[in-house]
């Protein structure tokens, strides 16, 4: 039982790390703009596609060492998709700032359709094989089996999360982002270029989403244009679970959602005597979300919205 538990735990951590990375994009964008960026799942989907494009381009040009090619392609995907995020914000969201919160949200929805169908039209709707970046070899540890892939994903994700935390808490630009999330008007009065902070968030968020997409595709060996929809929705749930707007909350929410899903799937049928099968996995995740919100209406680490903030007063 213990080795089974351990295996499931590693799996939960790996998938949770991926959710967490995507959730970070949702939560940071929400933090500065109070916008549910429905297009965010598509950045996750674009990650492996851009990676493949750049990687095969490098190899086609003669290439360097294989590992170096991969590393370059990963960095390039981050930058390309980050810039795409900045561009989309500039043209599809920024003109809508003065028009409440529904219009940008729906614009994001339209962008999601655009990005997804653009990939479908150019690459094709069918799932494509995605070669593993790190060879997946099983390692026996503490009586259980984990793969190098799982450990690699976990390590890379934690590295990115630590990096982001250091960046947001320790650098000047990070302070801009935090100030803009705190109060738009006050920070602009204090001379912070809020628009730059927003652009920065729209660079980092989609970039992290793309990294998560590469990890996910690498883990399952497959990529397809629709992969962003469901995962994006789940990662958004994770962001809400942790308290939307909160960066540590998104990480926590991601890992928590991973754990709920994996352990729910693994142990629920055993515990309920086969009554509730694995097909209820998503119901379980959503039900936990509703329960958490009923008792902690602002999520686990979210700040309780004070009655005075206009955002809270006027729902939509």
């Amino acid at each position: 039982m213990f080795d089974y538990f351990l295996q499931q735990l590693i799996f939960a951590l790996a998938i949770g790390a991926i959710y967490g990375l995507i959730a970070l994009g949702y939560t940071m964008v929400y933090g500065v703009m109070r916008l549910i960026n429905f297009a965010h799942g598509e950045f996750f989907m674009l990650g492996p596609y851009v990676y493949t494009f750049v990687f095969s381009g490098l190899v086609g040009l003669g290439g360097l060492a294989p590992m170096l090619d991969s590393a370059l392609a990963i960095v390039a995907s981050f930058v390309i998709i980050g810039l795409l995020g900045v561009t989309i914000e500039r043209f599809a969201y920024r003109p809508l700032r003065a028009y409440g919160r529904l219009a940008p949200m729906l614009s994001a929805l339209g962008m999601s359709i655009v990005l997804q169908s653009a990939v479908r039209v150019t690459v094709g709707p069918q799932p494509v094989h995605f070669p593993a970046i790190v060879a997946s070899e099983p390692i026996a540890a503490l009586g259980g089996m984990v793969t190098t892939m799982q450990l690699g994903i976990l390590a890379a994700a934690i590295l990115l999360m630590v990096g982001l935390t250091l960046f947001v808490n320790g650098t000047r630009l990070g302070i801009w982002i935090r100030a803009a999330s705190e109060s738009w008007t006050t920070s602009s009065l204090l001379g912070i270029r809020v628009n730059r902070a927003v652009s920065l968030v729209f660079f980092i968020g989609p970039g992290l989403g793309a990294m998560a997409g590469i990890m996910y595709a690498s883990y399952y060996g497959i990529m397809q244009p629709t992969m962003g929809s469901v995962i994006g929705l789940k990662a958004f749930t994770a962001a809400i679970l942790g308290g939307i707007g909160s960066i540590p909350g998104a990480m926590l929410g991601g890992f928590l959602l991973g754990a709920i899903e994996v352990f729910g799937t693994a142990f629920l049928p055993i515990l309920s005597g086969g009554l509730i099968g694995t097909e209820y996995r998503d119901v379980f995740a959503f039900a936990v979300l509703i329960l958490v919100l009923l008792f902690k209406p602002a999520g686990l680490l979210g700040e309780t919205i004070s009655e005075e903030t206009t955002v809270a007063k006027k729902d939509y």
Partner: peptide, 20 residues
Amino acid sequence: PVLKLRGDYLAIVTLSFGEI
């Protein structure tokens, strides 16, 4: 149960309900 939630939290709970 959910109407005490505000804004986006209400949105996500109704979304979850639809999915459930």
